[in-house]
């Protein structure tokens, strides 16, 4: 290929990349810039390129988020709920995945078939009866009811199951010959060799549940137990309409996921691609 042709193609590729960056990163930049601007300027500058530059940066909006709504409480609720879902979920689903992948027991195939069948049921299809079911037990409006139903997860079980299947058996057999029981073999041999699986499942679970909106909407009435997604949905309708404050709320809300995402990006992209290729 001729050199000028190569150059033209490279320039074209970069132009396209920059256009896509404007499309995908533009609204993020708009949020970041708007969060440090006086409210009046957010809309007034929205139509100009200045929408994407902070200009007179001040943290006033951030302070006002904490004054106008119980932001710390929303954040604490989100952290508690997600901590429970991720923490308990890793234990419960990894145990199940291991029993399905490695142990021989009566009923194994039936349980595996059940897990695969349940993968098909989207949460939205069962949200209403589940709401009715737990309300009937008098269980609502706390952190636990927002977490416990999501601990056991067919996708997580399936991901652990297929990961454990791919581990070489020799390690476990050596441990067993040394007299280690099933549980000790799992904890001392399998878990340390499966960090990639645990990391991917933890991160995908965390990112997915951080944005949960429908279930808390159905289950909560008190501000003390409401998580961030409900918080921002209420906040953006709360008069006086202050866009700077709302964007500051948004930045604070997405900060934990962005940190997790940027630090663990490799695991996350791997987890998504893995689910995709296997799925």
């Amino acid at each position: 290929m001729s050199r000028p042709g190569l150059l033209v193609r490279m320039v074209l590729a970069y132009v396209l990349l920059l256009a896509c960056t404007a499309l995908f990163f533009g609204p993020v930049l708009f949020m970041l810039a708007g969060s440090v601007k006086p409210d009046a300027l957010v809309l007034a500058e929205a139509g100009t390129l200045r929408a994407f530059v902070p200009g007179s940066a001040s943290l006033e909006n951030y302070g006002s988020v904490f004054e106008r709504v119980p932001f710390a409480s929303y954040m604490a609720s989100s952290l508690i709920i997600n901590g429970l879902i991720v923490g308990l979920g890793l234990v419960v689903n990894a145990f199940a995945g291991y029993a399905l992948a490695r142990l021989r027991w009566w009923g194994r195939n039936a349980v595996l078939a059940l897990v695969l069948a349940l993968l098909v049921i989207p949460f939205e299809a069962i949200a209403i009866p589940l709401f009715y079911q737990v309300s009937w037990l008098g269980w609502r409006d706390d952190h636990l009811v927002q977490a416990i139903p999501f601990v056991a997860n067919p996708l997580a079980i399936y991901l652990f199951y297929s990961f454990f299947l791919g581990l070489p058996r020799e390690l476990e057999e050596a441990a067993r010959i040394d007299g280690a029981g099933v549980l000790r073999t799992f904890l001392t041999i399998v878990v340390p060799n499966s960090r990639a699986a645990f990391a991917s499942v933890a991160i995908v679970t965390f990112l997915f549940h951080w944005g949960m909106y429908l279930w808390p909407l159905l289950m909560t009435t008190s501000e003390q137990v409401r998580p961030l997604p409900l918080g921002i949905a209420t906040f953006h309708t709360l008069p006086p309409l202050a866009w700077g404050d709302i964007l500051a709320f948004g930045v604070l809300m997405v900060l934990p996921v962005l940190v997790v995402f940027v630090v663990f990006q490799r695991w996350f992209v791997q987890g998504v691609a893995w689910a995709g290729v296997k799925g």
């Binding site: 291991y98 021989r104 009923g107 299809a125 139903p149 056991a152």
Partner: peptide
């Protein structure tokens, strides 16, 4: 072997309880 089967059931029990109570049951209820 028998103890392996027993341990296997203990390991899947929490997951099965969760899937049953929070997916299967509400689905049947729907």
């Amino acid at each position: 072997r028998r103890s392996e089967a027993r341990i296997a059931w203990w390991l899947v029990a929490p997951a099965l309880a969760g899937l049953g109570a929070f997916i299967l049951l509400p689905f049947a209820l729907a």
